[in-house]
Design a protein around this nucleic acid. Structure first.
Length: 499
RNA sequence: GCCCCCAUCGUCUAGUGGACUAGGACGCGGCCCUUUCAAGGCCACGACCGGGGUUCGAAUCCCCGUGGGGGCACCA
């Protein structure tokens, strides 16, 4: 226990396989080890587990790196930046695994196996038919070691399998769940080194974690069932065991079943995604995403909205939760909106720019800075700045004619209101909101129309939309001349309806 | 089929035998504020999966059930 709750510097790692896009599950698998390393003052390492050439996807590693960078999870050692245990890409470490696999063979903890995949398949099929557990039948385990060596040297294809003890049991410890005892008889002679010379996860991860001096292995709970094998491997080498913590999986929003890449389509319909790349485009911030995933599987008393720095202060590995968590996009929205409200004005402005650019709008920096205070508390995602604020940068707006007719009034009355507004505002030398609002309010008073009706018409005329940031402040930013032009246009539209 | 894990409001969680009338957050409902939409403030609704134990006392410990999840590859 002393070891488990150590406060000594920790070396942790994020070890994804480059087989697809980076999703929130990956992100959380990177976050917790990052937090631990920063909390305890150790190192956080990125290691690419690309030992499966069949599933390898060329762009995946870069996407992983981009994702980590976007989130601000900076690693201290990794394939692109090097480090004392280079290389950090497993495909470049073949010799290391080869050597370790054979070391186990020499120690008689593993054996070379020449069985063909075809035969193994048949055996498995047969076992399942007989309701037996599918497992290696031991054919090559019985081979004489000198004979095996001879066949290997002769160039015969082989794999190396772990020689699982037939008797006994093994007790392993998961930090979040306590100790788990497994009968060795339930375990298999798993392949450690494949016939293509590359290792399986079981060998590669254990060897690298040891060589890279990893102190805490934080990984998905899908590894829980193979932890006994992993501990066997570690002990066969006589190495120290790192602390293991298995994260629970993310469930679909419905809570039924594990969230998978295939759920993307469903989420996208509602403007959500589980892929980091998508989320960025959808206007989510790293702060929001981080806060969201952090709290799924980690209970932090008295803390809710947190920055990365705050998470580091508060993190403790034993406060992680072992139970599965259903993802909840509404909560993501909440965290995203909250962090947007917390941002400095210039920071928010800089982050909004790409979204205006994407819309082909020519934003002006000074205008952008001025509109931020009006926009900020209305944004759930960054790209909401388009629906709320595009009119600031458009040459002209084209209101829906029927929106120009106020509720309870007809086109004629609405046109009258627009004309009066034009007069009142046109009489002002400028339309700072201090100058424009009082006379307009006075007009509301004397006219008998409601503020809702008068300001509503003005809003649609000036912004082109029924929902907008506060009217008078918006008009001030747009400027007198443009406002008057837009109001005149509204008058024309309304008069066309009446005539 | 076999093995393993998990179980508190709809969701994420706090809770580590008495401080629990079970706390917070999101969402939902209502009210206030208000030129729209938000934001903000206030209030309400809402949970210990079931059954047995252990104990003076159990959300908390043990067992069984149920439900959910994961795993059983020359994938990770």
């Amino acid at each position: 226990m002393e070891k488990l709750l150590s406060t000594k510097p920790a070396r942790t790692r994020f070890a994804p396989s480059p087989t697809g896009r980076m999703h929130i599950g990956n992100a959380r698998s990177a976050l917790y080890p990052f937090l631990l390393a920063r909390r305890l003052g150790g190192q956080f390492i990125l290691r690419i587990e690309d030992t499966d050439q069949k599933r390898y996807e060329p762009g995946a590693e870069q996407e992983l790196i981009n994702g980590l960078r976007w989130l601000g999870l900076q690693y201290d050692e990794g394939p692109d930046i090097g480090g004392p245990h280079s290389p950090y890409r497993q495909s470049e470490r073949r010799a290391i695994y080869h050597e370790h696999a054979w070391k186990l063979v020499e120690m008689e903890k593993a054996f070379a196996c020449f069985c063909t995949p075809d035969r193994l398949d048949k055996v498995r099929q047969e076992q399942m038919k007989n309701k037996q557990n599918p497992r290696y039948d031991g054919t090559c385990r019985a081979l004489d070691s000198a004979e095996a060596r001879r066949r290997v040297d002769a160039g015969e294809k082989y794999v190396i399998r772990f020689k699982m003890p037939k008797e006994g049991s093994i007790t392993t410890a998961d930090l979040l769940r306590g100790s788990i005892t497994t009968e060795n008889s339930a375990l298999d002679d798993s392949v450690l080194l494949k016939s293509d010379g590359l290792p399986t996860y079981h060998l590669a991860a254990m060897v690298d974690d040891h060589l890279m001096e990893i102190t805490h292995v934080i990984r998905g709970s899908e590894w829980l069932p193979s932890m006994p094998l992993h501990i066997h491997i570690i002990r066969a080498f006589g190495w120290d065991e790192p602390v293991f913590a298995h994260l629970s999986v993310f469930l679909k929003p419905s809570g039924k079943g594990k969230m998978s890449k295939r759920d993307r389509a469903e989420a996208m319909k509602d403007g959500y995604s589980i892929f980091l790349g998508d989320m960025q485009e959808l206007g989510y911030t790293p702060e929001g995403v981080l806060n969201w995933i952090a709290l799924m599987g980690w209970g932090v008393p008295e803390d809710d909205v947190m920055t990365l720095d705050r998470m580091i202060e508060r993190f403790s590995i034993d406060s992680l939760t072992p139970s599965p968590a259903a993802i909840n996009f509404q909560k993501l929205d909440h965290f995203n909106a909250t962090h947007i409200r917390l941002m400095r004005t210039d920071d928010l402005a800089a982050r909004l720019k790409p979204y205006f650019t994407r819309e082909g709008l020519n934003f002006r920096d000074d205008v952008l800075l001025k509109m931020i205070p009006l926009l900020r508390e209305r944004l759930v995602t960054l790209d909401d700045c388009i629906s709320f604020g595009a009119f600031f940068f458009k040459d002209e707006v084209t209101p829906n004619p029927e929106d120009l007719i106020a509720k309870g009034l007809d086109a004629k009355q609405s046109a009258e209101i627009a004309r009066r507004a034009y007069q009142i505002l046109g009489a002002q030398p400028d339309i700072s909101h201090e100058r424009s609002e009082p006379p307009m309010r006075a007009y509301v008073e004397e006219s008998g129309f409601s503020a809702n009706q008068v300001f509503g018409i003005l809003r649609v005329a000036v912004t082109g939309q029924k929902v907008s940031p506060p009217l008078f402040e918006s008009m001030e930013i747009i400027g007198r001349d443009v406002c008057l032009k837009r109001i005149q246009n509204a008058i024309d539209v309304l008069e066309k309806i009446t005539s």
